[in-house]
Design a protein around this nucleic acid. Sequence first.
DNA 1: TAGGTCACG
DNA 2: ACGTACGTGACCTAG
Length: 538
Amino acid sequence: MKSPVVYSVSIDSLNELFSKIKDYEISVLPSSYSYKTASKCLSEPIKDLKSIFDVEICAYVLNTVSGNDVSFGTIFERTTGIIFPIDSESTSGQVSLFEMEDTDKKLKNAAGEALLVAYAANVQARQIEENKLTNLLYMIEFPLVLTLDRIERNGMYVSKDELTRLHDDFKTRISEIEKKIYELTGEEFLISSPKQLSNVLFEKLGLKHGKKGKTGVYSTSAEVLQSLYDEHPAIPYIMEYRALTKLDSTYAVGLIDKIESDGRIRTTFTQAMTNTGRLSSTEPNLQNIPVRSSEGEKIRNAFIAPEGRVLVDADYSQIELRLLAAMSGDEIMCEAFREGQDIHRRTASGLFGVPEEEVTSSQRAAAKTVNFSIVYGVTEYGLSQDLHISFQESKHFIESYKRQFPKVTSYLDSLKTKGEDLGYAETLFGRRRYLNELRSQNKNLREFGLRVAMNTPIQGTAADIIKIAMNRVNKALEEKVPSAKLVMQVHDELIVECDKADAETCSKLLIEEMENAVKLPVPLIADCGIGDTWLKAK
DNA sequence: TAGGTCACG
DNA sequence: ACGTACGTGACCTAG
């Protein structure tokens, strides 16, 4: 491993610097403490950059990022315990170093900033060693900074024509449905206002309501509407109105606005934000493009490969459940995965006490829900709500599950104890999430903390693994398939765009790099598809 | 700006 | 007696 470049700064020279900053009225501009802030100012990525030390990413791994505040001043103070010499508010209106005209001032600012960044980096590097986060930081997160920069610059190609057609279609249908709702309720009101809709449904029409929210308005959520489906003829139309306006505003119109002149949409990944180690995607969010409904599929179909090219889409098969098996060491679940069994069918067989061949599709669906819910830190109540079953049945399912996979149960219990003892949860690669909730006086918060203690090692380890896979895929494609580029990550899924002739090569490469990203007691399986749209490739 | 709602894994 | 599954981001309304 190459060691990162870290400049050493003594506290004396730092103090001297502070006084000079005051003397010369030089301001420190926090613009180059992270690769991303620097990269945004460049038209091309920095060439030949083999290693970096990114203070923002380091702060994230050390849990010194507070909320979504990744400003250098905050990171500096939380890392060093020294008050940042420039008030954060005073820097907000200033031009970035890269845009500054006055060369002399630019140099002075850059020098001042570099010293502060280098000092913070020096402190961080020591903290990383102390907390055994060296591999996570240098082998996963730092390389990922460059991988993500590539993906963001590549962008996803979309059909503006298709999105426009969809927008026109949605627009027409929405206004028809709107009229229908006014007729059927005998009232013209703002359907998109939960408050007004609640008034019409529960006050005027007197339909049976559920719970009130924080503002004292009865919920009009999809779940409530579904339960009222046959109670009034307007309800189905309201549900369709909701679905279509969502697709139109967030996806049709929202995405059209983000298409750049080369026909591509470029998201921004946030690498230093989530509590578990996952990425997030913003402006636009390309990690929540519809797929679960037939209308939603049409949006996904508008993500296309340019002429002569294809999309190759690979996703991990049940990675979180495989990790639950591997990390708990439950022999029964591990064996099921090693034998290539359908895990949901296997679980259903145990839950309903029938042979695997006789498991019905609804039994399998219920078992699938139970499998997922276990990873979330299930409660009897939560499961009963989700499956629309009684509390007793739900309790029976959970107890039966625990008997079927005994080591999963003891593992989850051990995670709770560990969280309470250490004050944090950790992933297989040592990523930490501190569990301040466990010290709360509030029982609900404490219970939330326990669920998080169980969930974070699973969700977070999955996040670590796909990050490793992304770095491997990015590197392998660069070396072996020049036409190919990574264009998206959606938590357990990677998408590559390449020349048609290279599709099979890419597919094999993705599977190879994803499945072998890490060695576990159970196999990791990646499924891969090829198509000329995102929908068809999946 | 906060809450409600809903899109995804 | 109470609230009740993990992680996100965007859009809309209302105060």
